[in-house]
Computed example of a mutant assay.
Amino acid sequence: MKNKRVLITGGMGFIGPSVINRLKKNNEIVVIDRLDYGIPDKLKNSLNIEFEFIKEDLSDINNIHNRIKSGEFDVIIHMASISLIPVCENKPDYAFKSNTISPLNILKSNIEKAVFLNFSTSAVYSPANKNHNEEDYFEPIDVYGWTKKHTEDLAKFYSKKLNFPVINIRLANAIGHGETNLKLFGEILSQIERGNSEIKLGNLSPRRDYVHTEDIAWAVENLIDSNTVKNGHFESFNIGTGYDPVSVKDVFELINKVHNGKLSLIEDDKRKRSPDQERELLAIDIDKLLKVLPNYKPKKIDELISDIVLDPGLRIGNSFVEDIYYKDQK
């Protein structure tokens, strides 16, 4: 992708730095973020030098919406959201404001002919004992999934109403440098950073597909470049690895191997999700993506684990998250 004017929302989060670093060499980038987790180390030296940065909350109407209306941007990549499930469950009003109202404010800003790429999640799918494809039934089991499902519906509606293309990506579980949330990798690595050798986790059997942020960024750029989705159309693509899903216990064992077997695992009942909010399997089929991007070759988790564990770059510690979740898990 070259010579595009690109707006990236939530670019200072977990996945954003990988997308920014991939696109900034050949495009003009504007990043908007409210800085819940500060500025990533990867971007500190290029802030307002290699790309423009704006600190704003998208749930409030502000100047960026006027810039969108003016037709300034060729591409809008929307990834700003609250994704930690305990936060969404405890503060659903906050979750809907961040995850649904914020993109609504962009979508109704008369995007014109810009490509809108929406970061969604595989959590919109109804639980099933199989890999989900893009046509599967939707019935999320948590607030986070519903906020994303509603955003998809709004994006589909406005794409047709205002005649712009929407690329909707449903992600598997992202992993990489700079985790910002206490999801599985962030939870294990933060306990290790606090000096714990006994790692406390909840349910150990659930299996997930883990895709690296760099592979996500590659897919994002190439999906936009493919010009697959036309004006007035909404098209979803699963982005995962296509490899066998990995259990919580298996992830721990991979991390423990990097630590030469010095860690022990405790299954902590206090950390377990309620049965109505737990999925034994959440994995996705990527055949549709591969038809458009046959050169997509994501790395396997065992190829990535050492680099992530030895240089995690964790940015966990947001006060809002701590108040709701983190302090009770120490």
Rank of each mutant, 00 (worst) to 15 (best):
D33H: 03
F96N: 05
N90S: 14
I111Y: 00
L47I: 15
I82P: 01
K24C: 10
P17F: 03
K108M: 15
D57G: 10
G38C: 12
V124W: 04
P103H: 06
N105C: 08
N21C: 09
S102Y: 03
L107Q: 00
P103C: 05
S70H: 05
G16V: 02
K25Y: 13
L43Y: 04
K108N: 11
K42G: 07
P92Y: 08
L84A: 11
N90K: 13
S81A: 15
K24H: 12
E50A: 15
I32F: 02
K55D: 01
N110P: 08
F119G: 02
I101W: 06
I20Q: 01
L107A: 04
V31W: 01
C88V: 06
K44T: 08
I101R: 13
L35F: 14
N99A: 15
N48P: 03
N27Q: 14
N105V: 03
T121A: 09
Y94D: 04
K113S: 15
H132V: 08
V115L: 06
I106Q: 01
F116C: 00
I20M: 05
A114L: 04
N63R: 15
R67W: 08
E112A: 14
I54Y: 12
I49E: 15
I61P: 02
S102C: 10
F14I: 08
I68T: 04
D93F: 11
S18D: 05
V115Y: 03
S70M: 10
F53I: 05
S122R: 02
L104W: 11
M12F: 09
P92E: 09
K91H: 10
I111W: 01
N21W: 03
N21T: 09
I101C: 05
S81D: 13
K69V: 10
H65S: 13
D60L: 15
P127Y: 07
S18M: 00
N90M: 12
S126T: 12
N21V: 05
L43Q: 02
M12Q: 00
L23M: 13
S102D: 03
L104D: 04
K55R: 14
K69A: 12
N110A: 09
F73I: 11
S120W: 04
H65Q: 14
T121F: 09
P86L: 07
G71H: 06
I54S: 02
S98A: 15
P103F: 02
K44L: 05
E50T: 07
A123D: 13
N131Q: 11
L107C: 06
I85V: 15
L47D: 03
V19N: 00
L35V: 09
I20W: 02
V19M: 05
N66G: 11
I61C: 13
S18T: 05
P17N: 09
K25C: 13
P92L: 10
C88A: 10
S120Q: 09
K25R: 14
N48F: 07
E89K: 08
D74K: 06
V31S: 01
N21A: 06
L104H: 09
Y37Q: 07
S122C: 14
G16A: 03
V30W: 06
S70V: 08
C88M: 05
I15K: 00
E72T: 11
A80K: 00
H132E: 11
S102F: 01
A123K: 09
K44N: 08
G16I: 00
D57N: 14
E134I: 13
N118P: 07
E112C: 14
V115C: 06
F96L: 14
S81E: 11
V31L: 03
I39Q: 04
N63I: 14
S122A: 15
